[in-house]
Amino acid sequence: MTPPQISQFLEDCIIKDDTNDSGLNADTLYGLYVSWCSLNRKVPLPDHAFRTALRIAGLQTEKNGKGKKGIFQGLRMTGPAAVDYILNSSD
């Protein structure tokens, strides 16, 4: 059973979009989750527990077209946490 906090995060921040060829990598998804937790005054799970919760929720990483592992295909960010994550990320 998916932890309620993760279910709410996925509902608030993730859209399934099969036209999105790039998807989201695991690090980006965790960063988005941390932003969501901050905005919602929740304590984030550690990265390893977060990834386990995603697997329980039925999300699995795949190789993208370039052979990179760790991509959640067909997902994109949405909502205030996505804006917060993008504005506060540094490349």
Score class of each variant (00 low, 15 high):
28 T>E: 14
28 T>Q: 15
29 L>Q: 00
29 L>H: 02
29 L>I: 06
29 L>G: 03
30 Y>Q: 00
30 Y>S: 07
30 Y>E: 01
31 G>V: 09
31 G>K: 10
32 L>H: 09
32 L>S: 01
33 Y>G: 00
33 Y>K: 03
33 Y>P: 02
34 V>M: 06
34 V>W: 00
35 S>G: 09
35 S>K: 02
35 S>F: 08
36 W>Y: 12
36 W>L: 01
36 W>S: 04
36 W>Q: 02
37 C>T: 09
37 C>D: 04
38 S>T: 15
38 S>D: 12
38 S>Q: 13
38 S>E: 13
39 L>T: 00
39 L>D: 01
40 N>M: 06
40 N>L: 06
40 N>D: 09
41 R>D: 15
42 K>C: 11
42 K>H: 12
44 P>Q: 06
44 P>V: 08
44 P>G: 09
44 P>C: 03
45 L>E: 09
45 L>H: 08
45 L>A: 12
45 L>W: 04
45 L>M: 11
46 P>H: 08
46 P>T: 07
47 D>I: 06
47 D>E: 11
47 D>L: 11
47 D>H: 06
48 H>M: 01
48 H>S: 11
48 H>P: 05
49 A>G: 08
49 A>R: 10
49 A>E: 12
50 F>P: 05
50 F>K: 03
51 R>M: 04
51 R>Q: 06
52 T>R: 12
52 T>W: 04
52 T>V: 11
52 T>I: 15
52 T>E: 10
52 T>K: 12
53 A>S: 15
53 A>I: 02
53 A>K: 02
53 A>T: 04
54 L>E: 05
54 L>C: 05
54 L>K: 04
54 L>Y: 00
55 R>Y: 06
55 R>V: 12
56 I>L: 15
56 I>V: 15
56 I>K: 13
56 I>F: 10
57 A>S: 14
57 A>L: 03
57 A>H: 01
57 A>C: 08
58 G>I: 07
58 G>T: 07
58 G>Q: 07
58 G>L: 07
60 Q>D: 05
60 Q>F: 14
60 Q>T: 09
61 T>N: 06
62 E>Q: 14
62 E>C: 04
62 E>R: 12
63 K>L: 15
63 K>G: 00
63 K>V: 05
63 K>M: 12
63 K>N: 13
64 N>S: 07
64 N>R: 06
64 N>Q: 05
65 G>C: 00
65 G>E: 14
65 G>T: 12
65 G>K: 13
67 G>K: 01
67 G>D: 11
68 K>I: 10
68 K>Q: 15
68 K>Y: 15
69 K>D: 13
69 K>T: 10
69 K>G: 01
70 G>A: 00
70 G>F: 06
70 G>K: 03
70 G>Q: 07
71 I>G: 03
71 I>N: 07
72 F>V: 02
72 F>I: 03
72 F>E: 02
72 F>N: 01
73 Q>A: 15
73 Q>D: 11
73 Q>T: 11
74 G>V: 00
75 L>C: 15
75 L>G: 08
75 L>H: 10
76 R>Y: 00
76 R>G: 07
76 R>D: 08
77 M>R: 12
77 M>Y: 01
77 M>G: 13
78 T>I: 13
78 T>A: 10
78 T>Q: 14
79 G>T: 09
80 P>H: 12
80 P>W: 09
81 A>H: 02
81 A>Y: 05
81 A>I: 06
82 A>Y: 00
82 A>N: 04
82 A>E: 07
82 A>Q: 01
83 V>Y: 12
83 V>N: 13
